[in-house]
């Protein structure tokens, strides 16, 4: 019996749901936990796609994503938060209710953009990936602390990774590995900077990073 497409649709819907929930999480542990859940969904999506398309390289990428995004990155973020004594509560520029509203608007905008693209078969999947990208942006812009911004970037990258899976499955495996390795290096650098900022200002709030301004 041929493998069904339905699990992919369910996984994509769960990705969308996780992104929506992420937008209004204001506790670090909850935010990182949801990111980890999203990583596991991506791994499941990759694994099922590998079965469906009979592409072994996708399975190897799934293993790599599981290790990096599912295990290493969340634990790195939480360990740095623990070591620096960063506050569990994450401040934002807008209220949580408004964050959810913005996320909803982002999903609507993503659906509109996806339906305008010349990919009629994949509109739902592209809507999910664009939603992840836009909600990642939302986290980057609305969070007033470096941890929230870091997770925002990772969610945005998840969206781009998912877009790649949906519309360009043939991206060479070496490139995918290179991108994931770059992402890991970026997170290591970001956490090293977070440590330095915490040491310098006794806080990871972005309020302390607004001195360089020409306006």
């Amino acid at each position: 019996m041929a493998p069904s497409l339905t699990p992919l649709l369910i996984l994509a819907a769960l990705l969308l749901g996780s992104a929506f929930l992420l937008s209004s999480r204001l506790r670090l542990r909850s935010l990182v936990g949801l990111f980890q859940f999203q990583a596991f969904l991506l791994v499941a999506y990759l694994a099922w796609s590998a079965v469906l398309l009979r592409e072994a390289p996708l399975a190897s990428i799934a293993v790599f994503v599981f290790v990096l995004k599912g295990l290493v990155m969340p634990s790195l973020l939480l360990r740095v938060a623990r070591q620096t004594g960063a506050s569990e509560r994450l401040a934002t520029y807008v209220r949580p209710a408004l964050l959810s509203f913005i996320a909803m608007a982002a999903i609507v905008a993503a659906a509109a953009a996806a339906s305008a693209l010349p990919f009629d078969d994949n509109v739902f999947f592209i809507t999910v990936s664009f939603s992840l990208i836009l909600i990642g942006f939302e986290l980057l812009i609305t969070h007033k602390n470096l941890f929230g911004q870091s997770v925002g970037f990772l969610v945005l990258e998840n969206g781009i990774f998912f877009l790649g899976l949906v519309i360009a499955r043939t991206l060479p495996v070496l490139v995918e590995f290179g991108v994931l390795f770059d992402l890991l290096a970026l997170l290591v650098l970001a956490t090293a900077l977070i440590r330095r900022v915490q040491r310098t200002h006794a806080s990871v709030a972005t309020d302390y990073l607004q001195a360089l301004n020409d306006l």
Partner: peptide
């Protein structure tokens, strides 16, 4: 000020390059 510059540099350029990756996809 260097830490502020480095953080902005890392996040803004990496976000830009991530969007560039969409072009590649």
């Amino acid at each position: 000020s260097s830490l502020e510059a480095a953080w902005k540099y890392l996040i803004i350029c990496s976000t830009g390059l991530a969007l560039g990756f969409v072009g590649l996809v």
